[in-house]
Design a protein around this nucleic acid. Sequence first.
DNA 1: CGTTATGTTGATAGCCGTCAACATACGTGG
DNA 2: CCACGTATGTTGACGGCTATCAACATAACG
Lengths: 250, 250
Amino acid sequence: MATISYMHDALDHVSDPEKCKRCSVRHQAVCSSLAPAELAVLNKIARKREFKAGQNILIAEEDMPYVATVVSGVIKLIQSLPDGRQQIVGMHFPPDFLGRTYGTKSRCFAEAVSDVDLCLFPKKEFENLLANYPDLETRLFQDTLDELDVARDWMLLLGRKTASEKVASFLAMIARRVPLQGCQHSSEPHQISFHLPMTRADIADYLGLTIETVSRQMTRLKTHEIIRLHDNRDITILNMDRLSELAGLS
Amino acid sequence: MATISYMHDALDHVSDPEKCKRCSVRHQAVCSSLAPAELAVLNKIARKREFKAGQNILIAEEDMPYVATVVSGVIKLIQSLPDGRQQIVGMHFPPDFLGRTYGTKSRCFAEAVSDVDLCLFPKKEFENLLANYPDLETRLFQDTLDELDVARDWMLLLGRKTASEKVASFLAMIARRVPLQGCQHSSEPHQISFHLPMTRADIADYLGLTIETVSRQMTRLKTHEIIRLHDNRDITILNMDRLSELAGLS
DNA sequence: CGTTATGTTGATAGCCGTCAACATACGTGG
DNA sequence: CCACGTATGTTGACGGCTATCAACATAACG
């Protein structure tokens, strides 16, 4: 299972001051709200860190002296009950920000779903930057407002949608967020192919279902020729309009 | 049902510059992060507005040129599906902040659960204040982070808790947030009395259940002598420890 | 080639939703 | 004052959706 491995083990400095310029998310991540001189300051405190799929990134109730930007890979945020039931309460894709400023402990677990590259910032120094660069704080604030909107959309899904609607909503959401595969300009319009970043168990924990129900709904979508399954992970959405209808977005 | 009535109808100016000083939430609301001179500026743009129970405060997808502080009463935030199913995604008590800065439209409906007093601020002018008073923005940012934590706790409830756990969790949450009634220093420890601010239908929409299931779980708690029902709305928690256990917080 | 992880499919059970009847409170108008 | 309608809440009978339990299939891996 998940190897225990904290965010602050085995850090590599971003020693090269030019490194930010070569970063794949430099134009989208929170750091893009900084002026060049400010970015140089951030560059000094930034550290790279890789996580293998399954590794813990944040531990609930434990001190976490870093915040981070997701450079590559996918991360899940997990809330859990004492008896082991768990619920995924957020997914982080590049170039999302990860971690909670103002307050030292995380309230959820965060685990790498795939191999992950993070760009870490010591929390204390990062908060100093926030105090000095209002644009950075505004940007982070806006990102948090967006996260709250996403969380509330998901609450509607968890509380009121059927299993069928949940799975359809999930696929529609993933299609919008993960990098797509293959030629998207085929003769068939609305066909979208992508690689699912997570297992059926993760999907179940994300949707408040069991893995069996997720599996059944997937085969149902396959039977109705709304999706095609190549590899359990590689999916083509054959009819995006129909999928959106099923998701309750019509 | 809910009377359509927008936030910007029938406004009263907070003409009196001393009015903020007499405000019942002045030491808790976001405005408490302002220095006296700054508060005077806020005072100038503030407007009082009352809403009757059932009135709409925010309409999804409509322009809303105000943000506000809840001075008294309770407000629910609602997400809904095209077919009418709905989910309450947030409750606002005094001295919470209401409305979304940065972005003109609301993504949820907000409706007064009880009679409500709001202190409104024109959004554009409020955002100017945010830009000039970093403490205010930091405060609002922190409040938003807290809201996000609450939303994620609720996602665990919606996705993974049973009806029994949901109702117990709800009562435990309400007991922490609404003003309590009567003498709390009785001979019986852990007895907490309060007035439920919402109907069974609201509770059901908050918990992702039906009103019948909520009702059955309430009588079940009553039968087990964990709560006492006086008036369908006036509740005494007889055994808070047991309730917390049932809520899955043990 | 066995072991483990992951996913699918079937049979069954149970929780909770649906439908219905009834109770109570409240306001309106006769 | 009472009749009536409406809103809210409770309780019961029943059914369906989804969880549970189980068997099996497939792939990855040492």
